[in-house]
Amino acid sequence: MRIEVDDLRVAYDGRTVVAGVNLLAAPGEITGLIGPNGSGKSSVLRTVYRHLRPAAGRVLLDGTDLAALAPARAARHVAALPQERGGDFELTVREVVAMGRTPYKRAFAGEDEKDRWIVADALERVGMTRYGGRRFSALSGGERQRVLLARTLAQDPDVLVLDEPTNHLDVRHQVELLALLRAQHRTTLVSLHDLNAAASVCDRLHVLHAGEVVASGSPLEVLTPHLLAEVFGVRAAVIEHPLTGDPLIAFDHTATATETPS
């Protein structure tokens, strides 16, 4: 399914943080939001998974305004992994993942065989099968992140919305998570701070700066030395990754974009 953000504006306490944003997440593709801290990435994503009500504009799911859908119906289509992880669930890992099946259940309905299979598959996909009986609150930050990703997969959505999903993960699990996203072939909207991760996993990038989209296109089209200097304030060269052929950003750690190296 396709997600379109149409002329979106988001405001907090009268201050506009997202101003007239238009973007597209195409069916089956991974679409990345990148930009400096405070650029509006999380605010855009929160409107997509209906945590925030926009001051103006719409989020469309295959042409239908998501705001017009009942919560359970919307949750069958869109699953989110937000930055705000919530409290320490006094539940087992398996029970947390099983929460992803809630949109499909009537009140007080128990699990059926399909639910159990989907939950087990989601745990296996994120490498957490043997943790199923552990308390979620006893896990490390990286382990919790993987469990919450499993919960979104158990929701079996058409669209995944992920806000900094590689936070708290070590290098191996970052690589595995990005490979997992690639293998899903679901419409995915993801914000990433790691620009090289964005270049490797995303089909399309939207660059946000001061609440506006300032560039859109493929990673090769978007990630130029000029944009990196203008938006992120860094000096960098963009070369071809020797293993994958993706754009690879080599940062100059001796100077900012406005400084001349000695």
Rank of each mutant, 00 (worst) to 15 (best):
L205Q: 07
H206R: 07
H206D: 05
V207W: 06
L208Q: 02
L208S: 01
H209Y: 15
H209E: 15
H209R: 09
H209P: 15
G211K: 03
G211R: 03
E212F: 09
V213Q: 05
V213K: 05
V214E: 03
A215N: 14
S216E: 13
S216R: 09
S216I: 15
S216N: 11
S218H: 14
S218V: 10
P219W: 09
P219L: 13
P219T: 08
L220Q: 15
L220C: 14
E221D: 12
E221M: 15
V222F: 02
L223M: 07
L223W: 00
T224E: 07
T224F: 03
T224I: 07
P225A: 08
P225K: 06
H226L: 13
L227Q: 02
L227N: 01
L228H: 02
L228V: 08
L228D: 01
A229N: 03
A229L: 04
A229G: 08
E230F: 01
E230H: 04
V231K: 01
G233D: 02
G233M: 03
R235G: 02
A236W: 01
A236V: 05
A236L: 05
A237G: 08
V238W: 02
V238K: 03
V238Y: 02
I239E: 14
I239T: 12
E240A: 12
E240K: 10
E240G: 13
H241P: 09
H241V: 07
P242H: 05
L243F: 10
L243H: 09
T244M: 11
G245H: 10
G245W: 11
G245N: 12
G245K: 11
D246S: 13
D246N: 13
D246E: 13
P247S: 11
L248K: 15
L248N: 14
L248Q: 14
L248C: 14
I249A: 08
A250S: 11
A250I: 15
D252Y: 10
D252G: 10
D252R: 13
H253Y: 11
H253K: 09
H253R: 13
H253T: 08
T254V: 11
T254C: 12
